[in-house]
Design a protein around this nucleic acid. Structure first.
Length: 350
RNA sequence: GCAGCAGUAGCUCAGUUGGUUAGAGCACUAGUUUGUGGAACUAGGGGUCGGUGGUUCGAAUCCACCCUGCUGUACCA
């Protein structure tokens, strides 16, 4: 940690929190739009619950300790403990219990939201991350579990993962119990060890995209809030891990059109620049007038830095002729263009 | 949580018998070019060498503790 001089505020981030930049966010948005599309197709309801819940609502109140368990971020508000949610399943259970009489049974809902965990962060593991959750509440039918698998697979493929790049693993306690009987493992410790070994084999086998998502049945969770018969099953994806997985793929690129930059030669010609900008923006072309008054060279450097495809040079002479000059920033080529033809010419380059 | 390794400029790193004012490349800023970016050249800014304490005439360098990061391992609603 760098010590700041003169009491200036620290520019460091709290442990386990990160800034996320455009490149990553675009991939994230892409994933989210795919998720929403699939969820609508499968008939799930969209839900949002608050970031904070009462600590005991999400199973984090320990009566004998004076404060909620570690693992969550909490504070005391008027004698009640509040915690930031650590997943989306516990809030769902709370929501279902609260609205039990009104909601359809079974209840299918999906949710996208940030969750927080007060744990030691590791590589690719932060204290704040975006999670996606889809659940069936109120059905014991294995049809629900099966549909979740199909659905998740559709989402992954839509996001650009080929069938060969992911594996959906299904496990059931019933199956493992049978297995244990066969090979004669009775001791509890031995079972745990065996289960972990299985889990580890799974993770190591899944190269590139590991621990990416999880799910399962939690038939009793809603019941904790009262006497509700609400067997449930669900699945969650750590969106950020999926983002990371997709970014690993070379061919994967999300396009984002960067603005055309109109250079400023003379503040007094601003109305001419604005005119051009308006024409382009109306045509849906991302455009901006250089935000400042620097020399042309600085303006070119700026355009280059933001990866602008084209710069428009509209100086005194060009304005007289009504013909701005277009400079293609990837080729360096320049062309004098009639204003009427601007949009067409630029669209060719973009 | 436990163990191993690491921390010098925004980034990647040089810097050993402990010795003037701590270096390089890239990046950044300004200029060479007051209408032209990606190249070159010139100049400049930026570090209490992760922190605190100790040893010493003298510490980036040696010692102790702490913080942070990486790796492995344990745990995890």
């Amino acid at each position: 940690m760098t010590k700041e001089k003169n009491n200036k505020p620290s520019k460091e981030l709290p442990l386990g929190f990160v800034d996320r930049q455009e490149k990553e966010l675009l991939v994230r948005d892409f994933i989210i739009s795919n998720i929403k599309e699939v969820m609508i197709k499968y008939g799930f309801q969209y839900l949002e619950t608050p970031s904070f819940e009462y600590s005991d609502s999400i199973g984090k109140f320990l009566p004998d300790k004076e404060r909620p368990d570690e693992g969550v971020f909490s504070f005391k508000d008027e004698n009640k403990w509040l915690s930031l949610r650590y997943d989306l399943t516990a809030p769902l259970a709370r929501y279902v219990a609260k609205n039990y009489l009104e909601i359809p049974k079974p209840f299918k809902r999906y949710q996208l939201g940030t969750v927080w965990r007060n744990e030691k962060p590791g590589p690719g593991r932060f204290r704040e991350f975006l999670q996606f959750d889809a659940d069936y509440v109120g059905t014991k039918s294995l049809q629900a579990d099966a549909e979740l698998c199909v659905m998740i697979s559709e989402i992954l493929e839509k996001c650009g993962l080929a069938k060969s790049e992911y594996i959906i693993k299904i496990s059931s306690r019933k199956i493992t119990e049978e297995l244990f009987k066969k090979i004669n493992i009775k001791d509890n410790q031995q079972r745990l060890t065996a289960l972990r070994a299985l889990d580890k084999i799974d993770r190591l086998g899944w190269i590139g995209v590991k621990e990416l998502l999880g799910g399962g049945r939690y038939d009793n969770l809603v019941n904790n809030f009262g006497n509700y018969d609400a067997p449930a099953t669900g699945i969650s994806i750590g969106i950020d891990r999926l983002v990371y997985a997709l970014m690993q793929k070379k061919e994967f690129k999300v396009k984002q059109s960067k603005p055309v930059v109109i250079c400023v030669f003379d503040k007094n010609s601003m109305k001419d620049y604005i005119e051009v900008q308006t024409i382009l923006r109306k045509a849906g072309v991302s455009t901006e007038i250089y935000p400042g008054e620097s020399k042309l060279k600085k303006q070119m450097e700026y355009a280059n830095k933001i990866k602008s495809p084209v710069v428009i040079l509209y100086g005194e002479n060009e304005i007289k002729l009504g013909k701005p000059t277009l400079r293609n920033l990837s080729t360096g080529e320049e062309k004098s263009i009639e204003i009427k033809e601007l949009v067409n010419e630029i669209k060719k380059i973009i």
